[in-house]
Design a protein around this nucleic acid. Sequence first.
DNA 1: TCCATTACACTCACTAGTCAGTATACATGA
DNA 2: TCATGTATACTGACTAGTGAGTGTAATGGA
Lengths: 199, 199
Amino acid sequence: MKSTEIPTRERIVVAASKLFYSEGIRAVSVDAVAEQAGLTKRTLYYHFASKDDLVAAYLEARDQPNLKLFQRWFADAEGTLADKVRSIFHNLARSARHPRWKGCGFLRTAAELANMPGHPAVKLGIAHKKRVEAWLAASFEAEGIHSSKVLARQVILLLDGSFAVVLLNRDASYMETAGEAAAVLVEAAMAFSKPETAP
Amino acid sequence: MKSTEIPTRERIVVAASKLFYSEGIRAVSVDAVAEQAGLTKRTLYYHFASKDDLVAAYLEARDQPNLKLFQRWFADAEGTLADKVRSIFHNLARSARHPRWKGCGFLRTAAELANMPGHPAVKLGIAHKKRVEAWLAASFEAEGIHSSKVLARQVILLLDGSFAVVLLNRDASYMETAGEAAAVLVEAAMAFSKPETAP
DNA sequence: TCCATTACACTCACTAGTCAGTATACATGA
DNA sequence: TCATGTATACTGACTAGTGAGTGTAATGGA
């Protein structure tokens, strides 16, 4: 019987993710997480040393799935490199129109914990964004773009910008605008890199 | 004597601004604000109906000064339109290197109150960003840029993106990168608009 | 008299984290 | 085969403190 059950620790992380993402870190009590997970607070504290630990686990669980989603959107898109980048923003806009969408969990956590820069959750956020940026840079590099690292940063800025803006005004069309801007920047970077490969 | 004193309400807003901006909304208690302002909680509640009211007042007080700062940075910069836009980001980067800098108060508040989209503070944030965007659009329009509204949105996206990114990783150089991206977008928009005005 | 303010005690709900103890499973040694 | 030991997973009740917001009586100044 045990083998088919979802491990308790995982159940706690799932419950925490749901609540922390939809309500915010400080707005959600440890009691609420325990109740959502269907167990007592004491059991939760058996698996996690503190609320901060739980917050870290929540973000850790979001890291890879998030990255893989971006990678799939990018890979599945047809057309030029600019089209592939635009596709990330377009898919993001689709997610953002969902009523339960509440921006980027990493950025929101960083905003909420802005007064504790060394917090493990903040460090996880930095690591996550760095991973996305590095993947983008590698993808641009593979296409022969010279300024691949700068371009990756610029796309990240537009990506996180659209997270912030759309979270504020709830108008997902900003994400399409960000996608267009990203496409312009990609084209500009390609125009700057391509001439040497043409003749 | 009264005429030279700072009004109590204003003192409360100043105290609230300092604490809310540096610690976050939920992390700061009403008691803490009262203490910072040098008066009792009861007096604070004489001037403000609730903590939410106080939060709204904090953001309301930030609206005009923030906008005026951007406008001054833009106006004081020399060179092309792209240079003027770049200057905003450059000046922002300078601010961001200050240890007390903690991102954009409007965005951080929106992130913290993501679970209450109708909150007055969130509405003030939306209004503030709209004002900045409208001012940018008007400035671009004045320079004969056809896509002035789209360009203004793109610059806002980069602006808020750099707030989010730099708040997370504390690397203000991202703001310079955002400034370069904005300059590229401005140049692209100008190249698209200028030809008709030449002959 | 009225406005602004204080002191301070108070409510009531909530918060992170802890205490002491239980149920089960599995292994050890006699 | 049966007592004993031990590690894992779990629980209800509790502590000590904080949260927003209120009630009330009293004070000083215009």
